[in-house]
Design a protein around this nucleic acid. Sequence first.
DNA 1: TATTGTTATACTCTATAACTATA
DNA 2: TATAGTTATAGAGTATAACAATA
Lengths: 139, 139
Amino acid sequence: MSDLPSGEIGYLLARAGGRAIRNLNRALEPFGLRSRHYTVLAASAAHGGLSQRELGGVLGVDPSAVVALVDDLERAGLVRREPHPDDRRTRLVAVTEQGATTLAEARELAGQVDTELLDALTVAERQTLEKLLRRIAAS
Amino acid sequence: MSDLPSGEIGYLLARAGGRAIRNLNRALEPFGLRSRHYTVLAASAAHGGLSQRELGGVLGVDPSAVVALVDDLERAGLVRREPHPDDRRTRLVAVTEQGATTLAEARELAGQVDTELLDALTVAERQTLEKLLRRIAAS
DNA sequence: TATTGTTATACTCTATAACTATA
DNA sequence: TATAGTTATAGAGTATAACAATA
């Protein structure tokens, strides 16, 4: 039926996912950011003051990688590292005003990139896809 | 509703795809192969004698990477590089008997890995997912 | 001139181990 | 003892440019 190997869905997921992040990376180039910066920025804004460890957990990114990503974002003035009130080891990542502005613009682009990627699907199908992917992610 | 950034479907695709290939890599470890070797082997078997350039095209892998993957597979005795009858530049990748045997075993594992990954979905939902992913891939 | 395979190279991503300061 | 952040490092994946042989 197909010329793809067994384990086909995994293969299709990997290819589509790869395309998605490449497209997003290209779209974010004007900001000097890559897709992982965007996810860190977005998660920080959504949760409001996560520790770096928590960020890594939420995003599935290794803590050592989070350090570098937050370094970049902080250097760009998009986030600040703030002390944790009770634990002097942990540092909370807070989005700056500039970070919020940039995030809004980047979010717009990310939405467009997704729309392009899913061009072949109807809106209902995109919702179905998202629902199925969330179920996989949760398992 | 969710704490994931816009561009969410792309993000979900990338995460699920990453999990899929990591799982497959782990499953293929006993063979000394990684997921990309598996896809090259499977595509070579399915099409029967593709050139390396064609393999790269079908799989979305850079030609220079195909060289290294075929090197590995050839060293392991799973494929042979054969001359193209009409064009002395191109080399056709043929699966050996041992390669076919290994492929069958690996395909079994790949199927199991997919099944595990999609554990949370019904069979009908998996088919829906596959159909949607193929539509994306084709676009 | 263009194309196939190849080599070299560089950059990103991922993962691990080890260190520090705190808990 | 254990945990958060950090640094260093190594391996895999991805991408580009350049070259030789051939078309």
